[in-house]
Amino acid sequence: MAPLDLTGMFGVTGSYLVYIGIGFCFGFILESSGFGDSRRLAAQFYFSELRVLKVMFTAIVVAMLLVFWASALGLLDYDELMVKHTWLWPGIVGGLIMGVGFILGGYCPGTSLVSTATLKIDGMFFLFGHIVGVLAFGETVGYFYEFWNSSYLGRFTLPELFGLETGVVVLLVVCLALAMFLGFGWIQRLVYGRGDPQ
Protein backbone atom coordinates (compact mmCIF):
# COMPACT_ATOMS: atom_id res chain seq x y z
CA MET A 1 0.00 0.00 0.00
CA ALA A 2 1.14 3.52 -0.81
CA PRO A 3 2.91 5.77 0.11
CA LEU A 4 5.80 3.87 -1.44
CA ASP A 5 9.24 3.24 0.00
CA LEU A 6 11.14 5.35 -2.50
CA THR A 7 14.72 4.75 -1.45
CA GLY A 8 14.00 1.06 -0.99
CA MET A 9 12.63 0.79 -4.51
CA PHE A 10 14.93 3.05 -6.52
CA GLY A 11 17.96 3.67 -4.29
CA VAL A 12 19.12 7.12 -3.24
CA THR A 13 19.92 8.32 -6.77
CA GLY A 14 16.63 6.98 -8.07
CA SER A 15 14.68 8.79 -5.37
CA TYR A 16 16.52 12.01 -6.24
CA LEU A 17 15.42 11.61 -9.86
CA VAL A 18 11.82 11.08 -8.77
CA TYR A 19 11.90 14.37 -6.83
CA ILE A 20 13.43 16.25 -9.75
CA GLY A 21 10.73 14.73 -11.98
CA ILE A 22 7.90 15.79 -9.65
CA GLY A 23 9.42 19.27 -9.44
CA PHE A 24 9.71 19.39 -13.23
CA CYS A 25 5.99 18.68 -13.68
CA PHE A 26 5.16 21.22 -10.95
CA GLY A 27 7.26 23.96 -12.57
CA PHE A 28 6.01 23.13 -16.08
CA ILE A 29 2.38 23.42 -14.99
CA LEU A 30 2.98 26.67 -13.07
CA GLU A 31 4.61 28.33 -16.08
CA SER A 32 2.02 26.99 -18.52
CA SER A 33 -0.77 28.34 -16.31
CA GLY A 34 0.67 31.86 -16.43
CA PHE A 35 2.23 31.83 -12.97
CA GLY A 36 5.58 33.10 -14.21
CA ASP A 37 3.96 36.51 -14.77
CA SER A 38 3.61 38.67 -11.65
CA ARG A 39 0.90 40.81 -13.27
CA ARG A 40 -1.38 37.82 -13.67
CA LEU A 41 -0.76 36.72 -10.08
CA ALA A 42 -1.33 40.18 -8.55
CA ALA A 43 -4.47 40.54 -10.71
CA GLN A 44 -6.13 38.05 -8.36
CA PHE A 45 -6.23 40.70 -5.64
CA TYR A 46 -8.03 43.18 -7.94
CA PHE A 47 -10.45 40.56 -9.33
CA SER A 48 -9.25 41.40 -12.85
CA GLU A 49 -7.95 37.87 -13.38
CA LEU A 50 -8.79 34.90 -11.16
CA ARG A 51 -6.14 32.41 -12.27
CA VAL A 52 -4.60 32.04 -8.81
CA LEU A 53 -7.92 31.08 -7.23
CA LYS A 54 -8.95 28.77 -10.07
CA VAL A 55 -5.65 26.90 -10.37
CA MET A 56 -5.11 26.62 -6.61
CA PHE A 57 -8.55 25.45 -5.64
CA THR A 58 -8.96 23.12 -8.61
CA ALA A 59 -5.62 21.55 -7.66
CA ILE A 60 -6.61 21.24 -3.99
CA VAL A 61 -9.98 19.69 -4.85
CA VAL A 62 -8.57 17.22 -7.40
CA ALA A 63 -5.69 16.14 -5.15
CA MET A 64 -8.01 15.87 -2.14
CA LEU A 65 -10.53 13.71 -4.01
CA LEU A 66 -7.80 11.43 -5.36
CA VAL A 67 -6.20 11.07 -1.92
CA PHE A 68 -9.49 10.18 -0.25
CA TRP A 69 -10.69 7.87 -3.02
CA ALA A 70 -7.35 6.07 -2.99
CA SER A 71 -7.63 5.75 0.80
CA ALA A 72 -11.21 4.50 0.60
CA LEU A 73 -10.14 1.86 -1.93
CA GLY A 74 -7.35 0.75 0.39
CA LEU A 75 -4.61 1.81 -2.04
CA LEU A 76 -3.21 4.56 0.16
CA ASP A 77 -2.77 4.86 3.92
CA TYR A 78 -3.89 8.39 4.88
CA ASP A 79 -2.37 7.96 8.36
CA GLU A 80 1.06 7.51 6.79
CA LEU A 81 0.86 10.76 4.80
CA MET A 82 2.79 13.78 6.03
CA VAL A 83 -0.04 16.10 6.93
CA LYS A 84 1.46 19.48 7.85
CA HIS A 85 1.32 19.89 11.61
CA THR A 86 -0.48 22.91 13.00
CA TRP A 87 1.15 25.76 14.89
CA LEU A 88 -1.92 27.96 14.64
CA TRP A 89 -0.74 31.50 15.41
CA PRO A 90 2.72 31.40 13.84
CA GLY A 91 0.95 30.10 10.71
CA ILE A 92 -1.62 32.88 10.71
CA VAL A 93 0.88 35.68 11.39
CA GLY A 94 3.31 34.24 8.83
CA GLY A 95 0.44 33.98 6.34
CA LEU A 96 -0.55 37.62 6.83
CA ILE A 97 3.07 38.73 6.29
CA MET A 98 3.19 36.60 3.16
CA GLY A 99 -0.04 38.08 1.85
CA VAL A 100 1.55 41.52 2.16
CA GLY A 101 4.71 40.21 0.48
CA PHE A 102 2.60 38.72 -2.30
CA ILE A 103 0.80 41.96 -3.23
CA LEU A 104 3.99 44.05 -2.98
CA GLY A 105 6.31 41.55 -4.65
CA GLY A 106 3.95 39.92 -7.14
CA TYR A 107 5.08 36.35 -6.55
CA CYS A 108 5.13 33.56 -4.03
CA PRO A 109 8.25 31.42 -3.54
CA GLY A 110 7.40 28.71 -6.10
CA THR A 111 6.24 31.11 -8.80
CA SER A 112 9.36 33.27 -8.37
CA LEU A 113 11.47 30.20 -9.19
CA VAL A 114 9.56 29.72 -12.44
CA SER A 115 9.74 33.43 -13.22
CA THR A 116 13.49 33.45 -12.61
CA ALA A 117 13.91 30.35 -14.79
CA THR A 118 12.27 32.23 -17.67
CA LEU A 119 14.59 35.22 -17.08
CA LYS A 120 12.11 37.68 -15.62
CA ILE A 121 14.12 40.30 -13.76
CA ASP A 122 11.34 41.08 -11.26
CA GLY A 123 11.26 37.36 -10.43
CA MET A 124 15.00 37.41 -9.78
CA PHE A 125 14.74 40.41 -7.44
CA PHE A 126 11.91 38.67 -5.61
CA LEU A 127 13.90 35.44 -5.27
CA PHE A 128 16.92 37.38 -4.01
CA GLY A 129 14.66 39.10 -1.46
CA HIS A 130 13.27 35.71 -0.46
CA ILE A 131 16.80 34.50 0.29
CA VAL A 132 17.50 37.63 2.37
CA GLY A 133 14.19 37.03 4.20
CA VAL A 134 14.95 33.44 5.16
CA LEU A 135 18.42 34.40 6.34
CA ALA A 136 16.93 37.24 8.40
CA PHE A 137 14.51 34.76 9.94
CA GLY A 138 17.36 32.45 10.92
CA GLU A 139 19.11 35.36 12.66
CA THR A 140 16.04 36.67 14.52
CA VAL A 141 13.97 33.58 15.40
CA GLY A 142 15.88 33.35 18.70
CA TYR A 143 14.08 36.48 19.91
CA PHE A 144 10.62 34.89 19.62
CA TYR A 145 11.38 31.18 19.74
CA GLU A 146 8.55 30.63 22.19
CA PHE A 147 5.96 32.25 19.93
CA TRP A 148 7.27 30.30 16.94
CA ASN A 149 6.60 27.05 18.82
CA SER A 150 3.33 28.14 20.40
CA SER A 151 -0.25 26.98 19.77
CA TYR A 152 1.00 23.59 18.61
CA LEU A 153 -1.84 21.21 17.79
CA GLY A 154 0.09 18.42 16.04
CA ARG A 155 -1.40 16.52 13.10
CA PHE A 156 -4.78 18.15 13.30
CA THR A 157 -7.30 17.79 10.48
CA LEU A 158 -10.54 19.52 9.55
CA PRO A 159 -12.67 16.38 10.16
CA GLU A 160 -11.25 16.29 13.71
CA LEU A 161 -11.86 20.02 14.20
CA PHE A 162 -15.49 19.87 13.12
CA GLY A 163 -16.18 16.37 14.43
CA LEU A 164 -17.46 15.31 11.00
CA GLU A 165 -16.88 12.31 8.76
CA THR A 166 -13.98 12.85 6.35
CA GLY A 167 -16.31 12.33 3.39
CA VAL A 168 -18.58 15.13 4.58
CA VAL A 169 -15.64 17.54 4.92
CA VAL A 170 -14.40 16.57 1.45
CA LEU A 171 -17.84 17.38 0.05
CA LEU A 172 -17.90 20.71 1.94
CA VAL A 173 -14.50 21.67 0.51
CA VAL A 174 -15.75 20.90 -3.02
CA CYS A 175 -18.79 23.11 -2.35
CA LEU A 176 -16.58 25.87 -0.93
CA ALA A 177 -14.40 25.81 -4.05
CA LEU A 178 -17.44 25.99 -6.36
CA ALA A 179 -18.93 28.80 -4.28
CA MET A 180 -15.66 30.75 -4.48
CA PHE A 181 -15.41 30.26 -8.26
CA LEU A 182 -18.97 31.56 -8.66
CA GLY A 183 -18.68 34.35 -6.05
CA PHE A 184 -15.36 35.73 -7.26
CA GLY A 185 -16.52 35.45 -10.88
CA TRP A 186 -19.65 37.38 -9.98
CA ILE A 187 -17.61 40.20 -8.39
CA GLN A 188 -15.32 40.19 -11.42
CA ARG A 189 -18.22 40.69 -13.85
CA LEU A 190 -19.67 43.35 -11.58
CA VAL A 191 -16.43 45.35 -11.55
CA TYR A 192 -15.04 44.71 -15.03
CA GLY A 193 -18.07 43.50 -16.98
CA ARG A 194 -16.13 40.46 -18.21
CA GLY A 195 -14.55 37.18 -17.14
CA ASP A 196 -10.84 36.29 -17.27
CA PRO A 197 -8.98 37.51 -20.36
CA GLN A 198 -7.31 34.78 -22.44
Binding site: P90, F102, G105, F126, G133, V134, A136
Partner: peptide, 13 residues
Protein backbone atom coordinates in the same frame (compact mmCIF):
# COMPACT_ATOMS: atom_id res chain seq x y z
CA UNK B 1 8.03 41.68 -1.14
CA UNK B 2 10.48 38.80 -1.46
CA UNK B 3 12.01 39.59 1.93
CA UNK B 4 8.58 39.56 3.60
CA UNK B 5 7.64 36.38 1.76
CA UNK B 6 10.82 34.59 2.83
CA UNK B 7 10.48 35.73 6.43
CA UNK B 8 6.78 34.88 6.62
CA UNK B 9 7.27 31.49 4.99
CA UNK B 10 9.75 30.44 7.68
CA UNK B 11 7.50 31.77 10.42
CA UNK B 12 4.57 29.81 8.97
CA UNK B 13 6.74 26.75 8.20
Amino acid sequence: GGILMGYGARLAR
